[in-house]
């Protein structure tokens, strides 16, 4: 199994670095450097967070690229030799993480050499768990977005849920307040336009009250919890130290990644492997 995963990883990495995508990633990296670091000597927290975000982007998009390459009919003879399809998923994620890590380290090296941020050893030691956990999560989220893994409505469900969580889980419920205000404004306009619209206006007011009510507040706090690890990481980096609770954030991201990976594996194991003929 390890031998097959290693071989597949080598193969997918070979495909990735021999494809046009490599050029796009390098161009993207230079554009990102120009936008974020060209004009300044970064503070350590800026360095950690911005390159962490760079890793998230590369990890997400390189997973999509590798998944697209794996989704070609060239892969049939490889599939036949697997004892479990999960081997392919592991190789895919490993390839993308390896590629991201190399690009991220080169990017960091470029910033270190050209912009000379003042990094202490303590701050350098903070970096690996943060960057790695974010990269792994981004890569697994990208799996759900790729044609190789998802099919039918699965993608819509996963990303619909994610969008809902983003809306519901904002820190102070501002999005829901904003939505409720819109409903109330429409309700007021409808009520003013005549008695025929009163029922509609009442329904909108009731919806606005529901959105700002206790129930949605509780649901919002649950969704809010989903984004806590990201806030904890940002707060920890900005403060210059992690509290004992904040230190759990990378581990929590890895737990999210594991759940999404299991979901992807489940989709993948029952998928028709009719791959793209080129």
């Amino acid at each position: 199994m390890i031998q097959r995963i290693t071989t597949l990883t080598n193969y997918l990495f070979y495909r990735l670095i021999n494809s046009m995508s490599l050029g796009f990633y390098l161009l993207g990296a230079f554009a990102f450097y120009w936008l974020t670091f060209m004009q300044r000597t970064p503070e350590p927290e800026y360095f950690i967070l911005v390159i962490g975000f760079f890793g998230l982007l590369i990890s997400f998009f390189s997973t999509l690229s590798v998944a697209s390459m794996a989704n070609e009919s060239k892969s049939y003879p490889l599939f036949i030799r697997l004892s479990s399809r999960i081997e392919f998923l592991i190789a895919l994620i490993t390839t993308s993480l390896l590629f991201t890590l190399i690009l991220q380290l080169l990017f960091a090296l470029l910033v270190l050499l050209r912009n000379d941020p003042e990094l202490t050893l303590g701050r350098v030691l903070e970096i690996p768990p943060l960057w790695l956990s974010i990269n792994i999560l981004a890569s697994v989220v990208a799996l759900q977005a790729s044609d190789f893994i998802s099919y039918g409505w699965s993608r819509v469900c996963i990303f619909g849920l994610l969008a809902l969580a983003l809306v519901m889980g904002d820190n102070d419920g501002a999005t829901l307040e904003w939505l409720a205000d819109i409903f109330r404004n429409i309700a007021n306009q409808s009520a003013a336009s005549g008695t025929a619209q009163i029922q509609f206006s009442q329904a909108l007011n009731a919806s606005a009250d529901f959105l700002t009510g206790d129930f949605m507040g509780s649901v919002g706090s649950i969704f809010n919890g989903l984004f806590w690890p990201f806030r904890a990481i940002i707060d920890g980096v900005l403060n210059g130290y992690f509290s004992s609770t904040q230190a759990w954030a990378p581990a929590l991201l890895l737990i999210f990644a594991s759940i999404l990976f299991l979901l992807a594996a489940d989709f993948f194991s029952s998928r028709d492997m009719i791959l793209r003929e080129d």
């Binding site: 070609e72 049939y76 036949i80 003929e277």
Partner: peptide, 15 residues
Amino acid sequence: KIGFKPERLHFPERM
């Protein structure tokens, strides 16, 4: 143990 040759043959061309 199965060996399979698909009808349409696609390979990694640069290899």
